[in-house]
Nucleic acid binder design. Structure first.
Lengths: 339, 339
DNA sequence: GTTATTTCCGTTACCGGTACCGTTGGGCAC
DNA sequence: GTGCCCAACGGTACCGGTAACGGAAATAAC
């Protein structure tokens, strides 16, 4: 039975002490090349497999990195995780994740459970954890990176961009297009705090420009192309004269684009549709829609690197606030300028 | 400093032994309710947080469940992970994942690393691991679930459907539409073994029906809507008379649909576009495209449940092969029949 | 040849919990 | 009061590794 082979067995078979066997397996110093080779050969023959659990307990540090995201059905978070993966590939670190479903209580339990694995670092989405979760994160002696948002106070490290400014920036850009009748479509606004911030930024900026009548179509269901389609239909039915619709994200905006294609509503001549995220997909749409490009992958990579730079360090380094650039575009199909 | 509070500290503060404190915290038997309350109160005051690493070492079993997927940029695997999450939510199990990028060598290293965490179970994508990885999985004394594919021999448990039959089934359905000129567009066929199986099923079935001339447009780049668009353009430029194009997945097919919209090629009258996966998105497309609906979430859920059912069990139960149904449709927009 | 360095390996003491078994004391039957 | 039983708790020995330190043999320095 392979999995019962322990380091002591290997050591015994090789005629060395457990300690030497350990060093040989890890490639540590103070072992002769001959011994290393012999130990490793025997380990392979015996089917020995290291035990991370014991190793982690012994040197009181794991190679785990916890990732807390609100959802997996949103491709954006997959891309963030993908960026994390890229950054830690080859470093021996293992990501493990949990999904909150935008539920603060679940987030709290998740963070607790993760912390009790004593990970090397924690990456959590957003800055709006509730009090108990924040307390937990603050008390933890490990690097914590909050991502995707910079509107608020970070517990430790922070990588993202201002969601409020994202909404405001898109509003500015839309106003410059000389439009008059602005609408809004959003989902999950009861729990997606970042979507709320974007909407607030959007509405505030419109208000500053004297635009206070902004018909909205909202729902608590989760974002999807299908929802975008039906909600656009509803909004335009009630307010046919709208010449701008801002959506809480690209999925909804794509749904809006599909609705307009079917109804032969000219986009963007008659109505500009503006989403958020800059999904790859929107660049291929037959219809030009506006969006805000965000570099999710870079955020994941930067967050993971921030943890890596602290890995092994006992003392806390400089706190970090990294703002990644975003880019507002009226036609998502325009080529991306290399940065 | 919170995180240095150990169970011994709690025990000392509560005036009980470590053992009693341990039992109190876990809600085990043989502790009086009064003591439990007192210990827990003190633990909370001290900010005590359990240590999964030590606990796992002590009782030699973890609550981790490893998930190996080839990619995260494909929404399909996010959905699988989402299904896994659903199944284990509330059970105290923690998923941790790794991404192979369709690279067998990386998969091997990943599986090794995961196994050295002694997880409660392992979920890996596909049946086509290389020899060394298979050996590793076979030797491991834990439930291993291979998902997404049933064409081949499983190491232990298996949840999925026949990729070969999926391709064949779609070919059958397309032939029934009375089409004559079949084409194919695929990406990543150098490494995505499941896509290869679908194509083989497709081509085999066409051949059985006397259709041997099947123009193909392939690429090693990863699937995307953009790739689908350009590859469709290329294929139709070379073979304008095609009246069916089968794609290796929905992303490419959607790109094809977008191309046809822009060029005013009538879909499906002039050409049927058939994808694979049944992404939610395709149901909202203005243009009807064909697809095969697969229940990714169910696969994830079933895989996780299979592991759960063995959790804690020492002996191996019955091996399992669970085939989940798939559904071929010519118009993805048609309503999904409840199962 | 003697002393100062390396090089290489072993001993000891944990890391922070839990399983297992033993012990204590109070309630109850008689 | 004696004996018995069970609830409630404690002592000990690990789980499988690694850090820290120490010591002996081999090499270098003089």
């Amino acid at each position: 039975m392979h999995s019962k082979v322990t380091l002591a067995d290997v050591a015994a078979a090789a005629g060395v002490s457990k300690m030497t066997a350990s060093r040989a397996m890890r490639g540590a110093k103070d072992v002769s090349p001959k011994t290393v080779e012999r130990v490793r050969k025997i380990a392979a023959d015996l089917g020995y497999m290291g035990n991370h659990v014991a190793a982690s307990l012994a040197n009181s540090r794991t190679d785990l990195i916890g990732v807390v995201v609100p959802s997996l059905s949103n491709i954006v978070f997959s891309e963030v995780m993908s960026g994390i993966e890229d950054a830690i590939a080859g470093t021996g670190l293992q990501p493990f994740f949990g999904v909150t479903g935008y539920d603060p209580e679940r987030e709290y339990l998740l963070v607790r459970q993760m912390l009790s694995w004593r990970p090397a670092g924690l990456i959590v989405t957003g800055l709006d954890q509730d009090a108990q979760t924040r307390a937990l994160l603050k008390a933890a002696t490990l690097p914590v990176v909050q991502i995707m948002d910079t509107d608020g106070a970070a517990v430790d490290l922070c990588v993202g961009f201002s969601q409020h400014e994202a909404g405001a920036g898109m509003a500015d850009l839309l106003i410059k297009q000389d439009r008059k009748r602005f609408g809004y479509v959003g989902c999950a606004l009861d729990r997606d705090t970042r979507a709320i911030k974007r909407r607030d930024g959007y509405l505030n900026t419109l208000a500053k420009n004297g635009i206070t009548e902004v018909p909205q179509q909202t729902s608590t269901e989760r974002s999807s192309v299908a929802a975008g389609k039906t909600m656009t239909a509803a909004l335009l039915a009630a307010h046919p004269s709208l010449d701008v619709i801002y959506y809480s994200n690209d999925d909804l905006a794509i749904g809006g684009a599909f609705h307009c294609m079917e109804r032969h509503i000219r986009v963007p001549d008659q109505v500009i549709l503006a989403g958020f995220n800059g999904l790859d997909l929107v660049a291929s749409l037959p219809t030009p829609i506006a969006t805000t490009r965000t570099s999710r992958r870079d955020i994941g990579t930067a967050a993971a690197k921030a943890i890596l730079s602290r890995h092994g360090t006992k003392v806390a380094n400089d706190p970090l606030l990294k703002t990644v650039p975003i880019q507002h575009v009226i036609d998502a199909r325009q080529t991306v300028t290399a940065k």
